[in-house]
Nucleic acid binder design. Structure first.
Lengths: 131, 131
DNA sequence: CTTTAAGACTTACGACTGTATGCCATAAAA
DNA sequence: TTTTATGGCATACAGTCGTAAGTCTTAAAG
């Protein structure tokens, strides 16, 4: 099922991730949670949160004079869709080449590799059970 | 070294990938190489190629009355940068979580898993040699 | 030769993005 | 109670994106 919310832009994604992280947050809380050096105005954050709600990703609820935003779509779902779109556009929809790229070109440490191997073992167990 | 070409948009990436694939191509050749059902005008393709050149990703050379476009930046480099940016924005710059996500949530087949395992083995050999 | 088709080069145009300002209400501070 | 800070809601505004139409030139077709 290809749910059709309008896609998130980069900056919108940045803000959404902060809300997900805080679970619920006001404009000010998001503003305060921005990383050092990311200097944007209160009003700008406000705009992004409003747009995120308009696009269907967040919902808001009044608390006193402030709006408290929370996720409306599960973060994992959004991540999933976003990754899928990315893989589609850059790797013809094939996950494997991207995984290979990540493993060999973006820094994976030995311990990461061990962890991956473990995951692969588990996964294969499950798969053969299903097959 | 953070090379600063302006980032590629989705549609630009789509066109760039076709040029990379063909190695060199005119507007018409790119147009013809578009997948079934991707209906955009000759002029639109022309615009994208021009923008890609303006952004420094392609260069063009006249051949008769046509322009032939070729990669100016190595495709792998662009892919690398794009993936890096993506990982940065969605996974705080950590490749491992994305790899995990890909392995367990986007369809990897058993044979893919075997292949991955092999790759991991090879890679670990290299790494411990360096460490 | 005149007409047509294919290209390049220039310009357009509405939607979306990133970033904010303006105005109004109200709670807190003085 | 007057001033100030904090918040919401509406509006702005230049830049980029996706998509293309207009104009000029030239090679090919008649």
């Amino acid at each position: 099922m290809t749910t059709q919310r309008p896609a998130l832009s980069k900056a919108e994604m940045e803000i959404a991730r902060i809300v997900w992280d805080l679970q619920k947050a006001t404009v000010r809380e998001v503003l305060d949670a921005l990383p050092e050096g990311r200097d944007i105005d209160y009003k700008t954050v406000q705009t992004f949160l409003r747009r995120l709600e308009a696009k269907g990703y967040l919902s808001s609820k009044r608390n006193g004079r402030s709006l408290v935003y929370t996720a409306k779509v599960r973060p994992n779902q959004v991540i999933h869709e976003t990754v899928k779109d990315f893989v589609g556009r850059l790797f013809d929809g094939e996950a494997l080449p991207l995984v290979e790229h990540l493993i060999r070109e973006q820094g994976l440490e030995s311990q990461d590799i061990d962890q991956l191997r473990t995951m692969l073992n588990d996964l294969e167990g499950q798969q053969s059970a299903v097959k």
